[in-house]
């Protein structure tokens, strides 16, 4: 694969670059079509939208719900202070971090391992495409799904929060979404890496979720020492949403480190794919 790049580069660098890029786009297209045909493109965003709506709605109706729960003695006065809109948004992000992330990881866990298990990859990878184009096309489509779902869910949450609880400036929501999206992207990248590495899709999902949990846990246990790691991103996003002002230098360090780690993981996945093909 490397060899092909070298020789073709000598001949005509621009045409090689474009043809390689076109093949990458073709594969992205195929991935998106697959997401559409398997209805992932429908139900993953739907889960996020539901989660997003549920948070403000359940907060708003909490007193009513408690009243009707029936286990309270007659005459109980329920007085729950209505939280700020920004707080509800932060809670929404926390919802995305559990159920939303689970759904995303489950939807993407078989992206490479599934194709290898079924044997399709034997037909696809003998075509003149590079392992990195194959991996990046999967990565791109996974990220599109994650960002799309997050944006849809968060927008729904922001709208309902504004209606029921209180308006939040959209810039604030926007910033927290960017940071949170980066965290989801990191988790997706880990999923892709494990899906390439491990034979079983379930093991890939388990490893990815475990890895994400570990990263968050470490960052929250040692916020001073590990504030710059990807695991701290979700915390920063909650802070941003709840109108807090996080330490901007640590935040930017975490952003840079996360992006570097993601690029590293993709390269590692491509390398792994090439190696496992040779070893099979």
């Amino acid at each position: 694969m490397k060899g092909a790049a070298n020789t073709s580069n000598k001949l005509d660098p621009t045409s090689f670059m474009t043809s390689s890029f076109i093949r990458y786009l073709v594969m992205v297209q195929k991935e998106l079509l697959e997401q559409a045909r398997s209805y992932k493109l429908l139900w993953v965003p739907l889960v996020f939208v539901l989660l997003g709506i549920m948070q403000p709605v359940s907060t708003y109706y909490m007193p009513v719900i408690l009243e009707h729960a029936g286990s309270l003695p007659e005459g109980t006065v329920i007085d729950i202070p209505m939280p700020l809109g920004a707080e509800v948004l932060a809670q929404t992000l926390q919802q995305f971090g559990t159920l939303g992330m689970l759904v995303l990881v489950l939807a993407c866990m078989g992206t490479v391992s599934g194709e290898r298990l079924s044997g399709v990859s034997a037909i696809i990878l003998v075509k003149p495409i590079s392992a990195s184009a194959y991996i990046s096309s999967k990565w791109t489509s996974m990220l599109l799904l994650a960002w799309g779902s997050l944006a849809a869910g968060y927008l729904a949450s922001w709208y309902y929060t504004g209606l029921l609880i209180g308006e939040t400036p959209i810039v604030q929501a926007y910033e927290s979404m960017l940071v949170y999206g980066l965290w989801l992207s990191a988790v997706m990248t880990i999923t892709l890496l494990f899906s390439t590495w491990l034979r079983s899709s379930a093991a890939a999902a388990f490893a990815a979720l475990g890895g994400a949990l570990m990263l968050t846990l470490l960052a929250s246990l040692f916020p001073k020492q590990l504030g710059w790691t990807p695991g701290a991103l979700s915390g920063f996003a909650y802070q941003l949403a709840a109108a807090g002002t996080p330490d901007s230098s640590t935040l930017s360090a975490a952003v840079v480190v996360t992006i570097v780690c993601m690029l590293g993981s993709i390269s590692l996945a491509a390398l792994q794919l090439r190696k496992s093909l040779a070893a099979e």
Partner: peptide
């Protein structure tokens, strides 16, 4: 083809029991 790698363009390959993307 000058080297390995590039020769993939020259080859059409059919495995023993081919599998495809069944949703296509």
């Amino acid at each position: 083809a000058g080297n390995r790698g590039e020769h993939r363009e020259l080859i059409g390959y059919l495995p023993q029991t081919p599998s495809f993307h069944n949703w296509m």
